[in-house]
């Protein structure tokens, strides 16, 4: 076991980990933050998306020891009010992909300048959803962006 110190959702965190642990395991099993989901465990589905130093990553692909000293944000850190447009537009059905979608969505809303070079659909392509056909997700993120632009 090794000791890992990092910043989790804005607060300092220290946890004993197995060197083989993935960031996903540390969050879910050792810290009890079960909002982050495992959909595939191999970097394909995006259900495990968190922000690492401000950028979305698949936490199932990140060896936990690599986040030493880094900033990690999980779905638990999101402001529920910011998620309202996703709710309204039907961006969630079964919810298994949803925390990952929410992390990507809120990241896009926080970085609207990226839309100058990338379409919403491109930016969301790393989050698999088997329920919605994506239209509800795209509409929800667009509405969140519009609300952000108005604010």
């Amino acid at each position: 076991m090794i000791t890992l110190a990092f910043t989790l959702n804005g607060a300092p965190a220290t946890v004993e980990i197995d060197p083989a642990d993935r960031l996903l395991d540390v969050l879910r099993e050792r810290l009890g933050l079960t909002g982050t989901k495992e959909g595939c465990g191999e970097g394909e589905c995006g259900a495990c998306t968190v922000w690492l130093d401000g950028l979305p990553v698949n936490s199932c692909l990140v060896p936990a020891y690599q986040v030493r000293g880094a900033r990690v944000h999980t779905v638990e850190s999101l402001d529920p009010a910011a998620l309202e447009p996703l709710l309204v537009h039907g961006a969630t059905q079964c919810g298994a992909c949803t925390p990952g979608v929410a992390m990507t969505a809120c990241w896009i809303v926080g970085h609207p300048e990226i839309l100058a070079s990338h379409s919403l659909r491109e930016l969301l392509a790393g989050n698999l959803c088997r329920c919605t056909g994506y239209d509800g997700i795209v509409a929800g993120v667009q509405a969140a962006l519009d609300a952000g632009a108005r604010a």
């Binding site: 079960t34 999980t74 779905v75 529920p80």
Partner: peptide
């Protein structure tokens, strides 16, 4: 249950 899903 939508908000519970969205917030994890």
């Amino acid at each position: 249950e939508g908000l519970a899903k969205l917030t994890g």
